[in-house]
Amino acid sequence: MNTVIFRTIAPFLAALMILFSVFVLLRGHNEPGGGFIGGLIAASAIAIYGIAAGVNEVRKALVFHPIAVAGLGVFLATLAGFMSLFVDAPFLKGLWLFLELSDGTELALSTPLLFDIGVYFVVVGAISAIALELEEDEETR
């Protein structure tokens, strides 16, 4: 598994996958995609990088502990639900904000997007935590 080709390719592959995962995340809601699938792609990227470069390297690159990232995700998703407290609507109502950018394009910001970003972080954090744990074990054997 640990060939030169793989080790050379892995950083680029991981970077590409994370970029793609963000694309899938933002594409969600009206098109197939969303936080869960995006998060899975990003977690696979982290796992691949972990196999190639070693778990310590990945943990250094991530800065935060994966579980802390998952915590951030839960926090963001719950926060998205609380936004509707300010408009007299029930928990988790979707709120939309359409911003006109200077070049005429429309930017849609919404609480479902915030929720999806939260899901993304939960999945990235939880899955990469499990993956790194298992990989770490393999290295020490």
């Binding site: 939880a126 499990i130 744990e133």
Partner: peptide, 20 residues
């Protein structure tokens, strides 16, 4: 099903690590 898959997947991952 999507929800059940996600939950089942995470619990399966946990049980796998636990078994190991």
């Amino acid at each position: 099903i999507l929800t059940a898959i996600v939950i089942g997947f995470s619990l399966f991952a946990f049980l796998l690590v636990l078994t190991y």
